[in-house]
Structures are given as C-alpha cells and as structure tokens.
Design a protein around this nucleic acid. Structure first.
Lengths: 347, 347
DNA sequence: TTCTGGCACTCTCTCGATTCGAGTGCCAAG
DNA sequence: CTTGGCACTCGAATCGAGAGAGTGCCAGAA
C-alpha cells in the first residue's frame, strides 16, 4: 500500500484547505491536483489518514480538514521553506536599514513581520543574558542623587536614578564620581553580565574606605539592572490580522488577544524554542501549552548578533496557515535583523 | 411641555441601554425608573427625542437606542463623573508606586487603565516639546565612534552612536571628549529643548577651531534627537476587551484593531484634546475623525508633571460605554501618573 | 393642555419542516 | 489495488407560521 501517495494526498489536503479554508472533499482533490488516481482511491487513502489521526471530518459528510498532527507531518516531511523573491529580500533589508537605535530596530522588525505574513508578529527584545557591558556612566544630579547609566553592547541603554548616602560634598563630589566611574569601568567594561555583576560586588570590598557607602549603592543598582527581568520584553504588531482570519478560530478571538497580553507567557513560549540555531521552529495548535493559543500556530526563530542566539521572534496565526511562506518570512527577517544587530554591536 | 422630563427619559434610556445592551422600550423604562408617568407619555417623549436626533429605533418596533448626539447630551448635561471609592484610589496609587523608570511608569499605567475600565487603554509617552535637557553624556567607543546620550528631565534617555571624522587621537581623545562634554552641558543643561537646539548650533561657531568637526557631528546628532518625532509614541493595552464587547460593533472589530495599529493617527487624535487642563475630554462615535473608530468613543485627559500638560492618556471603547465611571477612572489615573512624574522629575 | 389606557399594526426572531447537495462508505467488478 | 456506482447521512439554505415586543395614534380623562 502506497504510503507515498497517502502523504501526497495529505499534502494536497493541507494545501487546498489553507487555500480555500473549506473542508476538502475527494472529488475536488483529484480535480485540482493531478494525482493519477480516481476519487474513490483517494477516499480510501483519506479513511486511512483519518485512522492515523492526521485528518478529520467536521461531520459525517463534509470534506476533511487536517488535524494538528496532520499539519505537523506536513511541516516536517511534506514541505520545504519557500525561498523569498529577490524583491522581497530587498524590501526587507531596505525597511530595516533605516533604523536609528535598538528600539527602532525592534519596532520596525515587528511591523515588517506583521505586514509580510499578514499575521500577528512577536519580537522579543534582545536578552541581556549573553550581553556584555559596554560602558557604565555615572551622572551626578545633585548632592544626593546620581544617575547610573548602563550601556550594553547590543545598543540597549538602561538607567536608574539612585539616592546616595552620605551626600556628596560640593568640593569633592565630581572627583569622587570620576574616581568611581573609572574603577567601575575598569572591572566591568567589555565583560559579560554575570561576570560583571560578581566583579562589581568584589570591587566594593577592595575599594577605598571612604567611597564604599556610595559605591555599594551604585553597585547594587547596577546588579539590579544586570539581572533585571524586565529586560525580557516583547513587542507585538498585527493584531488586526486576527480579526481578518476570525472564522478560523472556533471560539472568538478574545482568548487569543488575552493570551497575547500576557507578555510573560509569550516570553516563556518563545524561550522554549529548540535551541538549534538558524532553524525555524513551529509549534502547532495544541502542541502549544498556553490555553487560549491552542487554535493557533507559532512560527519562530532565534536571532541575534554573532553566533549566539540573543532572542526570538516569530509570528502567530491560525493553525490553518501557509507554513512554507510564513517560515520563509520569519527566517529571512530573523537573519536580516541579526545582520543589522551585528553591524551595530561591532561599531 | 416638560423639557425636563424628556431629558430624564434620555438619561434613563442611556443608562438602561448601557446596562442591558438592548434597545429599551417604553414599558421597561417606566418599570425600572420610577418616572411618575405612564408608558404612553414616555412614548410621546421618545418620539420627540427621536425627532431631535438623540435616540433612534433600529427598526419600527424595537426599543430605542441613543445616537451619538444622545450620548453627547448625556455626557455634557446629564451625568456627573462618579467619584472612585477609597479602595480603588489606593489600588491605583499602590500599583503605580512601584515603577522603576519612565518606561515602567507608562507600562504600568496603560495596564492599570485597561484593567480598571475593561477597555482599550492608550497612553502617550510624555512628549519632549516642553522638556528640558538634564544632562548630555559623551562616551567614546573607540577612535572613530562616539555614543551621545541625552538625558531628559522626564527621566527619558535617548542615545545615538555616531561616527566621527577625523578620528580621535589616542593621546588627546579623552581630553577632547571631556572638553566637549563640559562645554555642551554648560550651554544645554537645564535648558528647554528648542532653546537647547539653537544654543548648541551657536556653540559650534564659537568653539575652538580644532574641535569643530567633531562638535558639528555631535550637535547635529543631538539636534536630531531633540526634535525627534519618534518620541511621540503610544502604548496600548487591553485590546482583548474589544472582543468581549464585540457585539457592540456593527462590523467586526477588525477595523478598530487596524486603526489602533496606526500609532501616528492615534497620536493626532490624542493631540486634539481640548487643552483645558484637568478636564476629561470625550469624543463620541462619529465625532471621531478616524475611519474605523467611528463606532467607538475615546475618553482622554492630559497628564504630566507640573502645571503644563505633557501628554495624554485615555481609553477607547464602544460608544455604548459607562461614561461616568470610565471618566472617573481616566481622571484618577491621569492625576496619579502626573503626581508620580512630578516626584521623579523633581529628584 | 397634558396625560393615559386601549388597540391595531409592524417588524424581528425563533422554530420546525422541507429540500438540496456535497461528500462519504461500501461493494462488486476490473 | 483500483475504480465506478449507489445508497445514505448530515449540514446548510429556504420558507412559513406564530409569538412577542414595541410602537403610533386616538379618544377620553384630568
């Protein structure tokens, strides 16, 4: 029995269903795809596919619809990522070139991804876990306040205003601050976050007795910023695309929108990627652990500067989506963003 | 003829309709509200209200529904902002207290507003137009690159990496940078944006001949950041609330979501507030110039530190909304955020 | 004048019955 | 193993009747 053909049939079903969004029957199938067999044969194959749980009939006499498992097989074995046209590639790079800073890169990326795929785009801010400190700046704002600015090699800037005790003297304030600035940068500049945090803590103990109280406050603010979970942010775009595809969702799109507002959950989801680099990951329907997103698929990929993955981006849409093209778009965008970030962080 | 009573009837209609979301008939009206008259009398009043264009019957024999104009009259003349309970106020201030920086304030505000009103919340980032420069920092990143960091009195930080020509010499680089840093801060620190931009440009001409090329680049980057329109950003939350109230929208919620993604348009909308401070502004249905938002109402108010309005925030929902409570929430949140910002910018 | 009760009328919504059609499952023959 | 044929099933669309809610209007009361 032709395993081969059965998979062809599955592929045809997925393609047609994605295209028409209506259950596809045996007759329509043989007409649209020139499988060399008759409708009856296809029906037999369909019965088998249904037994295997790859397709499913909404009711006795309607056509078949792929199940989550069916899409899974399709994605894993029956489709290749469709390469983008030259024009599309150019459009992507042009759109991203113009970004002025990290916020802008992220913003443009998410919009680009949404308009490219006509789905909901999700972009995680480059995470700090692998980042290094580029520079730390201390700015006195008066005798009792100091602004601590942490500049990250990804281009991100993090700042805190701290209150210091005792107050800086007018006479020595500036001198103290520049002393601290240089010793802090000496131990932390160019150092990865985790290491920087421990080194800084060590610095407190070896520092000049007089500087300790202030230094302690500064370091604790920095350590705080270094492990800051808030960094873990996501940006969304294209929510309106959900409404367009509204009929694809069994219940309303409400639960989906709700889930999308739970950024913490989204982050966890994006974090669960298989860690293989340069590989598009697809999570289909109920494979998705988040309630509310069980009728959606998430196509995502890591991106970041250099070889190490820094964060993830992706798109979310109905399980009935055009996987090959969506995957192509996600991959292309992830690569271009990585390039852009590379350029930025090497300057 | 009792003008008075007719307005009472209008108010009752609005209240009932907001409550039940179904057209309200004369019988139900006299039962729920103890107007001292009979249903027939109310019917006569309704006929008049309809002539005036304040209410409208979906079809011959259904109840009446307020028109946009009807809501307008209700908001302007028939309702008072319902004060929040002590507990709600406490909850608001507690929720906002914990914010660590400006991004966090905005983020918390928008979420708070969304969950408080159960509608879509919109918060504009504090605008720079009235802001002053708190400090400008130059950080050398190598011989040919310099990071310019602009710190604003609202707590916002803006940064740019620039390429300089000619390259800084290893020997003199640091000296040049600190010379520039101090002269720049001398003219720009504490100065409002517009003034700072012109002063900086003037500085280029009076500066030491040798420093000019670098200074020119720095100043142009700063001027760029100072007028930067990108500052004009909005943050949204609570989109899922649209789905919940989905039946209130004639067409789907798609167009609304689309409109919400056009941040530029939203900003214009928020900017069109009546400028009276401390006053909640309401734009109802078709009063709203944006296509796609014509079946929604926007309740907004300015906020900001000090007396001057810095930006706006608000909520967007179906025209059929509970105006008194929504207005109360918006006002309360706007006030608290202003307070928070006040505290921050005075440090 | 203004209000009220009564009554005929209109329109939507719901329900059930009927019909139609697409698609299946199965079978017997190629 | 494939194919054509055929009976069967079940949802979707159509139609009509009936119910119900609400109005508009009128004539009489206050």
């Amino acid at each position: 029995m032709s395993d081969e053909r059965r998979l062809m049939v599955l592929r045809a079903i997925v393609q047609d269903y994605v295209h028409t969004s209506e259950p596809v029957g045996s007759r329509a199938l043989v007409e649209r795809h020139h499988l060399g067999v008759s409708a009856a044969t296809v029906r037999n194959d369909m019965a088998l596919l249904e037994e295997e749980g790859l397709i499913h009939a909404p009711h006795t006499s309607a056509g078949r619809v792929p199940t989550d498992a069916g899409y899974r097989v399709f994605v894993d074995r029956l489709s290749a990522i469709k390469p983008l046209s030259q024009g599309e590639k150019r459009a992507i790079s042009q759109f991203l070139e113009g970004a002025v800073d990290l916020d802008d890169v992220v913003d443009r990326t998410v919009r680009l991804l949404a308009s490219l795929t006509r789905q909901v785009a999700v972009v995680q801010y480059p995470s700090l876990t692998r980042s290094t400190v580029r520079h730390i700046e201390l700015v006195p704002l008066g005798p009792r306040h100091l602004m601590v600015v942490l500049i990250v090699n990804t281009g991100r800037v993090e700042q805190r205003v701290i209150e210091i005790e005792p107050a800086l003297s007018v006479a020595e304030g500036d001198a103290v601050v520049s002393r601290l600035r240089s010793s802090i940068n000496e131990v932390a500049s160019g150092v990865p976050f985790m290491a920087a945090a421990t080194r800084l803590r060590a610095l407190v103990d070896t520092a000049d007795e007089a500087d300790r109280p202030v230094l302690r406050t500064v370091v604790s603010a920095l350590a705080d910023a270094l492990v800051e979970e808030r960094e873990e942010r996501v940006v969304l775009a294209g929510q309106s695309n959900l409404a367009r595809a509204g009929s694809d969702f069994p219940r309303s799109i409400g639960p989906i929108l709700e889930a999308l507002e739970e950024h913490v959950v989204l982050l966890r989801l994006l974090g669960q990627l298989t860690d293989e680099p340069d590989l598009v990951s697809v999570r289909i329907g109920a494979e998705n652990p988040v309630s509310g997103l069980q009728s959606t698929s998430l196509v995502s990929m890591g991106y970041g500067s250099g070889v190490e993955r820094v964060a993830s981006l992706g798109v979310l849409g109905p399980t009935r989506m055009d996987y090959p093209t969506t995957m192509a778009s996600v991959r292309a965008v992830a690569r271009y963003v990585s390039e852009i970030l590379d350029q930025n962080s090497s300057t």
